[in-house]
Structures are given as C-alpha cells and as structure tokens.
C-alpha cells in the first residue's frame, strides 16, 4: 500500500509541476514579449549563450570558415563548440 501511496504522490507532484509550467508560461508572456521587443528594436540576431568566442556568441553571423578560422588545420577548441553544430548556412551547402 505504501508503494502505491508513494507512486501516487510522485505522480501528483509531477502533475502539479506540469500545471505550474503552463501557469508559468502565461505569466512569463510579458518577459517573452519584452525580449522580442528588444530583439526587434535593436535588430539582434542571436542568443547570448556562449560569449567565449565571436563565432559562438553570434552563431548565425559566423564566418563560413568558422571551425577553421584561426588556421586551416585548427580544430575547434572552445568548449561551447561541443554543444553546437556547424551553422546551418554551412551544412546546407554540403
């Protein structure tokens, strides 16, 4: 019986978290709208996720030779390179 209670409790907590998520989405619409306004008014193009290199800070604006931009044989050495793929502009051409 205790097992069922634990499972029911966990399922209830998860359901509460999902409900909280949908409530949060509506309450965060204001913040999302502000971010959109900022992107539109300043004409921004990228998220500020990785500031360690210029081609990871602005992933969509990076040079076409990004992975080898310092030297033709230079391999990607920034940690954020392991989270990203070559930009779509490059892979599209393949």
């Amino acid at each position: 019986m205790a097992f069922f209670l634990i499972i029911m409790l966990e399922a209830f907590i998860l359901a509460l978290l999902i409900a909280q998520a949908s409530l949060n989405i509506s309450s965060m619409q204001g913040a999302l709208k502000e971010k959109k306004t900022l992107v539109r008014s300043l004409k921004l193009t990228d998220l500020c996720l990785f500031t360690e290199a210029r081609y990871t800070r602005h992933l969509s604006q990076a040079d076409l030779n990004t992975p080898f931009q310092d030297h033709p044989l230079s391999l990607e050495h920034f940690p954020s390179g392991s989270f990203t793929l070559p930009t779509n502009l490059i892979s599209k051409r393949k």
Partner: peptide
Amino acid sequence: SRPITREDILRTYESIFNWRGGMM
C-alpha cells in the same frame, strides 16, 4: 555579399544542442 535570412537564424538555433553535437 552574404545575405543571412531570418529563416537561417531560426534554423541555426533549431540545430543547437542537437543530439549529434559532441556533448549531447
């Protein structure tokens, strides 16, 4: 010149954290 469209920008972020990426 090199034009970068909004679609290109959105597609770039669709592929970020893709399962094929190193850490993922």
